[in-house]
Amino acid sequence: MAESNRPIIRACDLVYRAEETAMADGREFQVILDGMSFEVHRGEVFGIMGMSGAGKTSVLRLLMGLVQPTSGDIEVLGRSIIGLPEYELNRIREQMGMCFQYAALLDSMTVADNVAFALRRRSHLSRQEIERKVEEHLERVGMSGTGNQMPAELSGGMKKRVGIARALITEPQVILYDEPSAGLDPIMASVIDNLIVGLRDEFGMTSVVVTHEVEELFGISDRVMMIYQGKVVACDTPEALRGTDNPYVQQFVRGQAHGPIAV
């Protein structure tokens, strides 16, 4: 298969059980993902939707190698990440970025230091160049002039935008967004949506976006995957999903309380 046609991310028969938490509590393992397979193509915006607790965030954590699946395989940028030591995983992570649901800013550092963190550790850019890039990326997410503030001084939405700037500054090939517009006002949510689409169109950046905001996801994604009870119930273009007769998709898209999805 030609390199350009090869999926940038490939998950094969993923099973993930929350062993760590369950073991500590003496409870039975909770199955989060149960035999999930999907592919993400280079340069596409790939949406993942599902109910709260469906395992959307777990998918992102698995793709980033933050947790290991119970079984199955994950290939990122042409390489299996299962069982890789941390330093090997870091080589792959250098080409990825992740925006966390609650931003996960380093709270002992200023906004500018947070955004500059990866560049300072990995690039050979001068201090002035890094400062310029930080300001440029803060401006991109509507946070210009906040570099000297501490994360504790920001609102949830502002933190989220700083988190996005931090993930973008290294210009990764793949970027994973966990609920990118949750907690943002409609205008700023639109700015972030345009940013995600713009990065695809301008730089061919691949994005995986997790959210339960259907309209937002359909507006920006090339393909959308819906998960329910740890399994893929549908994966297609937004247009195809709107027209599908899959009862799970229809119930979720229409926001109906009654249907095959147990509430």
Binding site: L66, Y87, M98, F100, L105, L106, A118, R121
Partner: peptide, 14 residues
């Protein structure tokens, strides 16, 4: 608890 350790790992920092 606040996922800062995960954020470090996501930024390729051990």
């Amino acid at each position: 608890v606040t996922e800062q350790i995960d954020a470090l790992r996501a930024m390729a920092t051990d």
